[in-house]
Amino acid sequence: MLAFLVKRLLNAAGVMLAVAFLAFMIFRFVGDPVELMLNEQASQAQRDELRVRLGLDRSVLVQFGTFVLNAIRGDFGISYRNQQEVFTLIVERFPATFELVLVATFLSLAIGIPLGVYSAIRRRSFAAQAIQFVSVLGVSLPSFALGILFILLFSVTLQWLPAFGRGETVALGWWTTGLLTPSGRLALILPGITLSLFQITLVMRLVRAEMLETMRTEFIRFARARGLPDHAIHFRHALRNCLMPVITVTGLQIGNLIAFALVTETVFQWPGMGLLFVQAVTFVDIPVMAAYLIIVSFIFVTLNTLVDLTYALVDPRLRQDAMAGGAHGR
């Protein structure tokens, strides 16, 4: 277990280093930072001085080293656009994105799992076929189109839900949450559903496929032969066997959701990291772009590693080491 842990951590560190290099290349070579930071009238002396101050006169390797060390400390430099620290800027936006992703993930599991189970055990029923059909639609419809459709229907026409923004938020330390106010919760609904739709169909199809496969196994046949009732067979035995892939995929998808939240955030003017990034791109705010890349990758890699470790915890067969000697785990 320890060797496994160390291996996974080294792996993660390697990936992060590669991403940092990419971000560094963008930072260093997409446009000249000095040109971007000073106005046209700046003198050559001023330019040189800034160049030295930014460390741009040193070798690329030293610059990269400094870049990585700074990044580890959370120092991504100063935003070109509003002269604020990039890290603070992104951290401020993180709770908005995270809550959106959390809601989307929750919806995808809460809706996707029951639909998946249902369409597997009532495979031939009309409802199951209909769910399958709608899920195909769900996969093929781009989320921004759906978001705009939702805004038109629920905000403009029916005026039930807000079309943009987070509503009122409450500060809990550095974290701001929209979950504690009515307007904050209302504001989460449309973007949350929009972001989760693809995810719902994904979870549903995964659960369905896994359930159908599990229902054909010998241990389900033996459970049926023992006269266990259907609900126990479906939910206790079969679904349990499907949960691991669902955990894996959901965990991995959180990274994707954070990345794809960019589109949803743009449509709903949701003040998250994605919107910040889109704005940074418009203003060629390179430090913000580089930092976004690194932070989102970091989340990605962290989740990946966590999922692997969870996997080892959930599946008793992978827990073998911990169980050796007859000790009963947990």
Binding site: F219, F222, G227, R240, N241
Partner: peptide, 24 residues
């Protein structure tokens, strides 16, 4: 029929390696 299975008629299948739920 379900209530009968296991109560009145028990069954044993060929492969003990796959007859038991691996996660229970």
């Amino acid at each position: 029929m379900r209530a009968l299975r296991g109560r009145c008629i028990g069954a044993i299948f060929q492969d003990p390696l796959t007859s038991l739920h691996p996660m229970l």
